[in-house]
Amino acid sequence: MAAPPFYVQPMLRFILTRVSLIIPTFLGITLLAFFLIRLVPGDPIETLAGERGIDPARHEQLRKEYGFDQPILVQYGIYLSRVLQGDLGKSMITQEPVITEFAALFPATIELALCAILFALILGLPAGIIAAIKRNSIFDHGVMGISLAGYSMPIFWWGLILILLFSVQFDLTPVSGRIDVLYYIEPITGFLLIDTLLSDEPEAFWSAVRHLILPTIVLGTVPLAVIARMTRSAMLEVLGEDYIRTAKAKGLSRFRIVALHALRNALIPVVTVIGLQIGVLFTGAILTETIFSWPGVGKWLIDAIFRRDYPVLQGGALLLGVVVMSVNLLVDLAYGLINPRIRHTR
């Protein structure tokens, strides 16, 4: 039997190692979610079933149904097998399966998050690059100052200030929601920007765009600051390398040096940072969605807290955790594919 090509084995080993590393993390998240409900003060059955002061017979029946009469490890086993089958319980308020509600609301969060990261990239990359090229200029100091402020920004306040400016003062943008109430858009992809284009109402698309502007800015502010700072420092490092000096000595144009030689290498750490921003984005989404009444999973979770809808809180947190974990894994794998130095360590 012929030996596999020399590059296959480390690659395969790299993928298998990374994938196997998420198993303990996944188990850890399920354990957290499992014990969460048991930490809530009061009777866990009343907590889970949402029925208060129920009679002893019904209580006993529910105890069996939820498996509370079993040893704790068995209970966890039952919970884990349910989770793996996609059964995360039902919302106490709507009686809908948690996973169905999550799936219905998640596209709104994704749409917002994608727009935010796009906004951050479109502004952050050029700002960082120019700041690095014109090091110590007024522009550089300005970009660094603004990005430090952006990094320190309480975004829940930033949202209110933008509403004050653009909605109240200039009446340019709507205050809340995803689209004007007068439009009804059949969800096809769940992304309103696409669904409105597919519908026969062109006006609806612009309504959706106007609703997206402020939440996008608010959610994109912290990633924008991080990306600008990271791009600048990565560019500065690369611009000091020998091969850049060589390129300069060869008489290449400044644009060619920056765009073709420097940027390509400077982008590697930037890509990692963007991957790491996913967690930050979901955190920000919780606050942004609350401010703008954006019907996504973040607002859904916060509402669940105040309604004491514990199954939603438990299942929603678990699902968000799994999403972030999976995205991190994908970024990790993609990074290993691009950069051979990484897959050969360990």
Partner: peptide, 19 residues
């Protein structure tokens, strides 16, 4: 690593919601 995986504010929110 598990704590780092979860978005920081989400974890804090969940803990406070429970406690």
């Amino acid at each position: 690593d598990i704590i780092l995986t979860l978005p920081s504010l989400l974890l804090a929110i969940v803990i406070v919601a429970v406690l």
